Simulated scan of single mutants.
Amino acid sequence: MNGRVVLVTGAARGIGRAQALRFAQEGADVVAVDLCGPVGTVVTPPASPEDLEVTAKLVRDTGRRIVTAQVDVRDGTALADAVTAAAGELGGLDFVCATAGITSSGAALELDTQTWQTMLDVNLTGVWQTCKAAAPHLIERGGGAMILTSSIAGLRGLVGVAHYTAAKHGVVGLMRSLAKELAPHRVRVNSVHPTNVDTDMIQNDMVRRAFRPDLEHPTREEFAAAAVTMNMLPIPWIEPVDVANAALFLASDEARYITAVALPVDAGSVSR
């Protein structure tokens, strides 16, 4: 990754932070974007500006450069401006990790319109906005790679999160279309599909109670005992670095002829 530059959305924590750090450890400079604030309809704790600064420090500690921006991926104009400015400062852009996302829950027939729309706006339209903002810079460099973070919910139906599942399935369709449209420019596009990942997006009462509705405040251990049933391998969840490693491979020269692929990083969950 020496001499390369990666854009990571949702970079303040979780998978996005892990991606920023792993790319930096392999020599890339980083453009780190995150809203760093709440999203309506979402009850899980949001990332903060301080979280994004932690990511920046971790990257700088590797000796690499980083440009941060607090931007909402739903705002295409602001996102494009931030990406263009950062690419100018760092000398270009080679890779994209479109990772920013939210979670909420509700039965499909009980979701209100705003909850449905916000989910699609962030988890699908936000990914499209990210790719749209970055693509001209990758084309200018003569090629590159985009890795779109989907979910096992992009490959199978999940109960209680129809809006999330629809958005993550949409990411797969977007990935496949972009792979075809950008192939003449030597830009590869793939998606990664994690099972549960040990981040703040699952380690909260809302998600824990979905797995253990018999308990008012399930502990981490009680949640783990239920979550392990989702996976083929006997683990309750994977770590952010596992997803980051998959993204790093898909961006690397070792994956130079891999495009339009939906790669599960799921401990066998999809095949279970």
Rank of each mutant, 00 (worst) to 15 (best):
A108W: 06
A153Y: 07
H185K: 00
M232D: 06
S151W: 11
Q129H: 09
A183R: 00
A134C: 01
V127Y: 11
V261K: 07
P136D: 01
L21H: 00
V189R: 12
A85Q: 10
L182I: 01
V189L: 14
T103C: 11
L35D: 01
T68F: 13
L90T: 02
S48A: 04
A183Q: 10
P38A: 15
N123Y: 06
L148C: 08
A80V: 06
H163T: 01
R220Y: 13
T84F: 02
Q19A: 09
V73D: 13
P49Y: 06
V30C: 07
M230V: 04
S150I: 00
V197Y: 08
A210Y: 13
I139G: 01
G144C: 04
P234L: 02
D61A: 14
K168Y: 09
K180Y: 09
R256S: 15
T165E: 01
P46V: 15
S104C: 13
E181G: 00
L58D: 03
D61Q: 14
G142Q: 07
T199I: 11
I147K: 14
T99C: 14
P46C: 15
V159L: 09
V73N: 08
R22Y: 03
F23C: 05
R209N: 09
R60H: 09
P194V: 00
H185L: 08
A78T: 01
Q70H: 12
M230L: 06
V96S: 06
V30I: 15
G16E: 10
I147H: 13
N231D: 00
S271Y: 08
T195H: 07
L58H: 06
L79P: 12
W116A: 04
D75P: 05
M201H: 05
R74M: 12
P184S: 03
A145L: 07
D61L: 11
A85C: 07
G173E: 09
G143L: 08
E239T: 02
D266S: 11
A166L: 00
D75E: 12
L248K: 01
V270P: 00
I15P: 01
A18V: 08
A179L: 13
H185Y: 15
R65E: 06
A244M: 04
V43N: 09
G268R: 12
R188F: 14
E140F: 04
T44Y: 15
A183I: 10
A246V: 01
H217F: 12
G101T: 02
V228C: 01
T199L: 11
A78H: 12
H193I: 06
I258K: 01
V31I: 15
T103H: 10
P194E: 06
R188L: 13
A260E: 14
N231K: 14
